[in-house]
Simulated assay, not measured.
Amino acid sequence: MKSEPLRIAFRVDADTHVGTGHLMEVMALIEAMESICAVEPLVVTRANPYTVERLERSGIRNVMLLDGGCDEEEDVIETVGILSAWGYRDLVIDLLDRSDAFYAALKERLATTTVILDNNVHKATPADLVINFSITQSACFYDPLPGCYLVGPRYAILGGAIAQRTPPGVKESVSRIFVNQGGGDPYGLTSKTLKAVDGMFEGAQVDVVVGGSLGRATLAELEETKRELGGGERYIFHSNISQQEVYDLMERADLALTAAGNTLYELSYFGVPSIVICHHPLHDTVARAFEQEGAVINLGEGNRLDEEVIACEALRVAGDLGLRKTLSRNMRRIVDGGGTARVARRIAEVVRWSRQAGPAGRGKGAAEIANF
């Protein structure tokens, strides 16, 4: 007999402040889950044109928009109300900076909750399943804690069936440069990076991936930068492109100038030698962890950087084939591309466990889930 599809809801947002990484993770998870089991996803999100458009393009039909503000209590009430109306009792939460009280309130009201994090905080989180794929995480911290924790880059949630791609080798010279500062680029670091390297790398093509949630001021600054760039035909700006198209650019890149969000984990899979220009202290912590593995050159927070520093480091890395090979090799050791499938399978297992356990298992299933 054909099994009933898993009805799993996803709570996610994307905007200039939080960027687009959380949304990309959810879309990647849904795609992975659809490849391993029958699933009926429901996405609950705040109204944002970019979010709605990307979900529509990905073929996700069931999307509900929240009406309330940013208050956590209102969010819980409205989210649970939507799930109840649709007949969903299992929720995956991929949001920025939510309190333990928020997670606990959702866990109390639903059959299962999964929380996806990407930070350097080591603590228990109220949920049936917790994923934190940050390179800063240490699995041994969670061993004595109740519940199921999947931590570290082994569980990096990357999209577009990235594991089916073949990472390229390192070429003798740099002919393609990949530039990206995340989906929101809240600090205008794309413009700063381009100004820093303008006039360098004669004959090289610079592929600039423009995030989908840039604010008006950042977009205006970027347009002004485009007009100022010398040899402008070498700069190709890619806006509103698919994840597969982003991966095409990464496969061709010989050097990347990037932030330390999800894109850094994707570049790691492809082994693209990368110079990291961070948005904020959390990014800097992540980039330093990559640097400690000999995998990137970390320049720290971009707002504190002189353009000359960016230029000098870019020239140094581009001119040192041995260094680029070392960076590439060490990046490939960190991310294997299988994280999305691992997480998708585990979420499906947790939901199936909940169905089998029924009401009797509610609230006491941490150990059972961990051993399911």
Rank of each mutant, 00 (worst) to 15 (best):
residue 323 L to H: 02
residue 253 A to C: 07
residue 16 T to P: 01
residue 179 V to N: 07
residue 243 Q to Y: 04
residue 280 H to T: 03
residue 79 T to S: 13
residue 189 L to F: 11
residue 296 V to E: 03
residue 187 Y to G: 11
residue 232 G to V: 02
residue 201 F to P: 05
residue 132 N to P: 06
residue 110 L to C: 11
residue 64 M to K: 15
residue 19 G to Y: 05
residue 84 S to F: 06
residue 372 F to L: 02
residue 199 G to N: 04
residue 58 S to C: 11
residue 48 N to C: 13
residue 159 G to S: 09
residue 3 S to A: 14
residue 278 C to W: 10
residue 254 D to G: 15
residue 346 R to F: 02
residue 90 D to P: 13
residue 327 L to P: 09
residue 47 A to C: 06
residue 48 N to F: 10
residue 267 L to V: 04
residue 206 V to Q: 01
residue 274 S to E: 00
residue 366 A to I: 03
residue 51 T to H: 00
residue 196 A to N: 03
residue 288 R to I: 07
residue 44 V to Q: 10
residue 294 G to W: 08
residue 10 F to P: 09
residue 127 A to L: 10
residue 191 S to L: 05
residue 251 E to W: 02
residue 191 S to K: 05
residue 60 I to C: 07
residue 351 V to R: 01
residue 252 R to W: 04
residue 126 P to F: 13
residue 33 M to S: 08
residue 349 E to T: 11
residue 94 D to A: 08
residue 216 R to S: 15
residue 363 G to T: 10
residue 5 P to E: 14
residue 318 A to V: 07
residue 107 K to G: 13
residue 174 V to W: 08
residue 205 Q to Y: 00
residue 264 L to A: 09
residue 256 A to N: 02
residue 187 Y to M: 14
residue 193 T to M: 04
residue 202 E to T: 05
residue 177 I to Q: 00
residue 124 A to D: 10
residue 272 V to D: 04
residue 313 E to A: 03
residue 315 L to D: 03
residue 15 D to E: 05
residue 253 A to H: 05
residue 327 L to S: 07
residue 191 S to N: 04
residue 349 E to F: 07
residue 205 Q to G: 00
residue 301 E to D: 14
residue 70 C to S: 15
residue 110 L to W: 09
residue 205 Q to I: 00
residue 109 R to S: 14
residue 256 A to K: 05
residue 192 K to Q: 15
residue 11 R to H: 11
residue 1 M to I: 12
residue 94 D to P: 11
residue 295 A to L: 04
residue 53 E to R: 14
residue 292 Q to T: 09
residue 116 I to V: 15
residue 73 E to M: 08
residue 351 V to S: 12
residue 338 G to I: 00
residue 135 I to K: 06
residue 53 E to S: 14
residue 19 G to Q: 06
residue 72 E to Y: 10
residue 198 D to T: 01
residue 308 E to V: 10
residue 307 E to Y: 02
residue 286 V to C: 02
residue 239 S to R: 15
residue 300 G to A: 10
residue 155 Y to Q: 10
residue 162 I to C: 00
residue 341 A to G: 11
residue 72 E to S: 13
residue 105 A to I: 11
residue 354 S to M: 01
residue 339 G to V: 07
residue 226 K to I: 03
residue 290 F to S: 05
residue 229 L to T: 01
